[in-house]
Design a protein around this nucleic acid. Structure first.
Lengths: 183, 183
DNA sequence: GAATATTATGCAAAAAAGTGCATAACAGGG
DNA sequence: CCCTGTTATGCACTTTTTTGCATAATATTC
């Protein structure tokens, strides 16, 4: 029930089309919410029917028309109301950790390949976040409160990735030790 | 498609009933996979039909019989095969960060209450993980490889919670600053 | 000139996860 | 004796997410 609120929050920042939202969810909000374009378009239709959003048709030559969505008063009220409710933690589901629980069925080299791949992935993600930070949030003191909150969201992503990378090093060390002791 | 593999990995460690699995998923594997008992029982039936598991009926006086599940050869093969496939990252979906994106609709005190609640929650979780570590993994060098991998899974949970707590402090500082500047 | 990427939208089906409800017996505290 | 907790299982319904498919025009690269 929360893609809805992620969309409301994103549109609260500024009006956008499904395409814009898809881009934002993949970039600036990558550490916040994950959704495919199909999900987003579906949700936008549904929320418009429910009266939470207003659509403005923006015709374009040579491209499909853009549908620019913005919050209606009902949408703002719904979001404001949700913000006062206390949220549970998102469920943890980590395939990589499942692998560790079954990991003695395969050789350590195979686990090493996987953890190395993930490490690279996290590294790239961290770099992306840092780029965004440098571009949007380089002067944190002078910026309006809204942006400071967004910056904090990004900071969580950065800390997360740093933590993952440090953990990956710990795993690599253990695997190296095991690989040596077997040979 | 992955509760299946979480179950396979858990049963690979040792045969168990749905009840046992539910307990493990809530405690020792809390940072690995999240599932309700309904989900687990459903999955166990399905996987047994598919021939991945074997059931042994263990009658009990005065309590419903236990159904002890263990991996079949097909189950082991399926798990071993999955372990060689490389996994994508689990999708990020964090309601708390969504709140930050809409957070300027409510007063900072309300956000403060929420972050404080979450902080406590993380703190408790961290304590739980550390208890498990002390109980099961206190002598990491002398323990078989399988346990070392499980320990690493737990380490990720510990690092995660530490990272979350540090981040929470950052948020509290910003909110305090804002609350003061408004009064 | 052909293949690929980008902007822009969406439907339909399948898989996975969440929620409410249900049963059954014992154990322990008040 | 009643209430609550623990062991032990599960069905049915609903919501959410994923995945495959589809369209349409331009811009860019080989």
């Amino acid at each position: 029930m929360s893609l809805k609120f992620a969309v409301l929050a994103a549109l609260h920042e500024q009006p956008a089309t499904g395409y814009d939202l898809t881009r934002n969810f993949r970039t600036r909000m990558a550490n916040v919410w994950n959704a495919s374009h199909q999900q987003i378009y579906r949700e936008l239709s549904k929320m418009t029917e429910e009266g939470l959003l207003e659509v403005e048709d923006v015709p374009q030559d040579s491209r499909p028309d853009r549908k620019l969505y913005r919050l209606s008063d009902a949408g703002i009220a719904d979001l404001a109301n949700w913000l006062t409710e206390s949220q549970g933690r998102p469920p943890t589901r980590d395939p990589l950790l499942v692998k560790l629980f079954g990991g003695d069925l395969v050789d350590p080299e195979s686990l090493m390949a996987e953890i190395t791949r993930q490490r690279q992935n996290w590294r790239q993600e961290l770099d992306r976040y840092r780029d965004i930070e440098a571009e949007y949030f380089s002067a944190p003191e002078q910026v309006p409160f809204r942006f400071r909150l967004q910056h904090l969201a990004l900071r969580k992503g950065i800390r997360s990735m740093e933590s993952n990378l440090a953990w990956a090093d710990e795993v690599v060390a253990v695997l190296n030790h095991e690989i040596k002791s077997r040979s």
